[in-house]
C-alpha cells in the first residue's frame, strides 16, 4: 500500500455492470474490511456476502451500484454494504429468501446465504420499484484463533 489510509475510510460507491465489477466490489470490500479491523473469517464472510449480493444486483436487477460505508457507533466499528438496482424488484421477498429458491440458475443461496453471513440484513423492494439490499456487519471481539498446545509447531504457514 502506497499511502496511509485515514483511520476511517470514506464511503465508496461502485458500479455493478459486469463480471469485472463483481471482482472490483469484492476487492474493495476486502480492503475496507481489513482497514476497519475485521478478522480474517469476518472479512471472508463479508466479501462472500458482497459477492452474492452484487451478483444478485447484476443478474436480477440488471446492474446497479454497490455502496460500501464504514460505520462507527460508540465503541462499535462496522461496515454497511448496500446494493441498489432499478430492476423489476422482488415480488415475494419471503420466497426469494428461501434457501434453494432460484430464478437465476444459481443455487438459490444468494440472499438467504448472505443474510447468514452478516449481522443485519434488510431488503427494500417491490414490483417495479427496484431493489435495495443492505447488509451490516460489526467487528466482533472474538480473538484470533491461536492454535497449538501441540508438541511441534511448524513456524510459517
Amino acid at each position: 500500500m502506497m499511502e496511509v489510509l485515514p483511520r476511517r475510510p470514506a464511503p465508496i460507491a461502485l458500479p455493478i455492470g459486469s463480471d469485472a465489477d463483481l471482482a472490483r466490489v469484492r476487492q474493495h470490500v476486502r480492503l475496507v474490511a481489513t482497514e476497519l479491523g475485521f478478522g480474517l473469517v469476518q472479512q471472508t464472510k463479508l466479501v462472500t456476502a458482497a459477492s452474492e449480493l452484487a451478483r444478485n444486483t447484476l443478474v436480477h436487477g440488471g446492474g446497479g451500484q454497490a455502496e460500501i460505508t464504514p460505520l462507527e457507533e460508540g465503541h462499535r466499528t462496522g461496515l454497511r454494504l448496500s446494493f441498489v438496482d432499478q430492476g423489476p424488484g422482488i415480488r415475494d421477498v419471503a420466497l426469494a429468501m428461501t434457501d434453494g429458491y432460484s430464478t437465476g440458475g444459481g443455487l438459490g443461496l444468494g440472499l438467504s446465504g448472505a443474510e447468514r453471513l452478516v449481522h443485519e440484513f434488510a431488503i427494500e423492494t417491490g414490483p417495479g420499484r427496484g431493489t435495495t439490499v443492505t447488509a451490516v456487519a460489526w467487528v466482533t471481539g472474538v480473538p484470533a484463533p491461536r492454535s497449538g498446545a501441540g508438541p511441534r509447531r511448524p513456524g510459517a504457514r
Binding site: T48, L109, R116, L117
Partner: peptide
C-alpha cells in the same frame, strides 16, 4: 481450502 473459506461456506449453507 482455507479455514476462513470453509467456515464461510458452511455458514452460507454450502
Amino acid at each position: 481450502m482455507r479455514p476462513a473459506v470453509a467456515i464461510t461456506l458452511v455458514e452460507l449453507g454450502l
